[in-house]
Nucleic acid binder design. Structure first.
Length: 197
DNA sequence: CACTAGATGCTCT
DNA sequence: GAGCATCTAGTGA
């Protein structure tokens, strides 16, 4: 796992499909991920160099990069690549395989297959917030948040990343083919400015 | 099912 | 101030 996460994100990302992400009682089997290649990637938060928010991405691999999105949501990445490269894998969706009661309690209106179908839904169901930014996912000793060894790869679908403006044609989104918990593709749409005045 | 609009606040320029 | 690696509720078929 550590060797895998030391490599480039477009290699690590598809291999993480099927891996188990555990947070307390709730666990998710990853079914959809995206690769982000740091300063070399126009879609990456690290594109314009390090900032306070993206500091974790520039740190060692195997840690969680958690950021706040759209004023309401948390999204989680796994930092990969050599330290300083700021590469990461965004965890976009998964299937809840443990702690179903807790998961349902955190998203009471969602059907089971939608519980972790989307990056912000996944963090909500697992109870992940900015407090988890920077924690190691590979540590031993029973930490709250852990990433298990990936299973042998099954059929993997690939396509462009969801909702990104830069490098919109780069096919760095990977998912478990045919899995119902994979989110729907949506291209980037510029936010319409409210009328002036 | 498809599509639209609004919520909501942090981050960086 | 502009721009978000999003989600939900609403409408219409």
């Amino acid at each position: 796992m550590r060797e895998l996460l030391t490599g480039p994100p477009e290699v690590a990302a598809p291999r993480l499909l099927g891996a188990l992400l555990s947070a307390g009682a709730v666990a998710v089997r990853l079914t959809e991920v995206e690769a982000y290649a740091g300063p070399a990637d126009p879609a990456s938060h690290a594109f314009r160099g390090p900032t306070p928010r993206t500091a974790t991405m520039f740190g060692p691999p195997g840690h969680a990069y958690v950021y706040f999105s759209y004023g309401m949501h948390w999204c989680m990445n796994v930092v990969c690549g050599p330290a300083g490269r700021a590469s990461a894998v965004l965890l976009r969706a998964g299937e809840v395989v443990a702690g179903l009661p807790e998961a349902r309690g955190r998203r009471p209106r969602a059907r089971d297959r939608d519980l972790a179908r989307g990056p912000a839904r996944l963090t909500k169901v697992l109870g992940i917030t900015g407090a988890d930014d920077g924690v190691s996912l590979l540590a031993t000793g029973g930490p709250r948040l852990t990433l298990g060894e990936p299973l042998p790869a099954t059929a993997v679908g690939t396509g462009p990343r969801v909702g990104v403006a830069g490098a919109a044609d780069t096919a760095w989104r990977f998912w478990v083919a045919g899995d119902p918990t994979v989110s729907v593709y949506r291209p980037h749409v510029p936010r319409r400015r409210p009328p002036a005045g």
